[in-house]
Design a protein around this nucleic acid. Sequence first.
DNA 1: CAGTATCCTTAATGATACTG
DNA 2: CAGTATCATTAAGGATACTG
Lengths: 139, 139
Amino acid sequence: MSVGHTQVTASAEPVVSCGGEHEDCGIREVLDRIGDKWSVLVIVELAQGVRRFRQLQRSVPGISQRMLTLTVRRLERDGLVNRTVYPTVPPQVEYELTPTGHSLTHLVKALADWSAAHREGIAASRRAWDAAHPDSGIR
Amino acid sequence: MSVGHTQVTASAEPVVSCGGEHEDCGIREVLDRIGDKWSVLVIVELAQGVRRFRQLQRSVPGISQRMLTLTVRRLERDGLVNRTVYPTVPPQVEYELTPTGHSLTHLVKALADWSAAHREGIAASRRAWDAAHPDSGIR
DNA sequence: CAGTATCCTTAATGATACTG
DNA sequence: CAGTATCATTAAGGATACTG
């Protein structure tokens, strides 16, 4: 794999660049989809199974009715979530992950794992940086 | 496939929930870090090797000087990037990924792979949804 | 070159009230 | 219950000018 060259690029780095291009691989597309404030939290909850609207809202503390609606709508539009309406009264609507949505849970798990592994180090780095740069505006 | 039961949880889903809690695993922390518009693009570029400020800016088309500064500062604060200043004139500043920053490239690669695998399906889902919901406001 | 400092625009999210 | 409709608030990002 590693061709002993000028640049070591550490041990086993994955090639993230797209064929020498400076191009954004599809990375931004995923982030535009799950990089918002609530999507992953909803996905994590739906990974447990089918959920109704209110149930979902209670499971994701802090989300407003409006944002939950927007979030599940967008996930539905992208084909990550299925929405099933039962014409009862009061109305009942169920949400569940599609196969594509489920495949995302692997990615989410990878994110969670990375976070768990580096959370402390990052927090420490921040404390150090903040101490070294009192009034920098950054935060 | 279908085990006539209450909850099937599909085939081999990773457990994303944190021990029965409704808690945000550290997922939001990672997303708060790389979910912004430019961080991953900068990381992808730095994954290729050491870069200077202007060089970085040229490699990430569209980024403003201000946003590049903010982005690298935040990455530095989090310990993902090292910043080295050479007191020459004109000034020369080099940026490179730290080991922690490098470890992120694996995650970024996973994101790129998932995106590549599902991009078409998602686009199709969107087209279908948009056709079925002409004036929905969602988009 | 590598930034800061300002000002401005827009997108994202939140709060609240109302409805089939 | 499961939304929609409005209005208000922030936060993110962009444009531009200036500096060691």
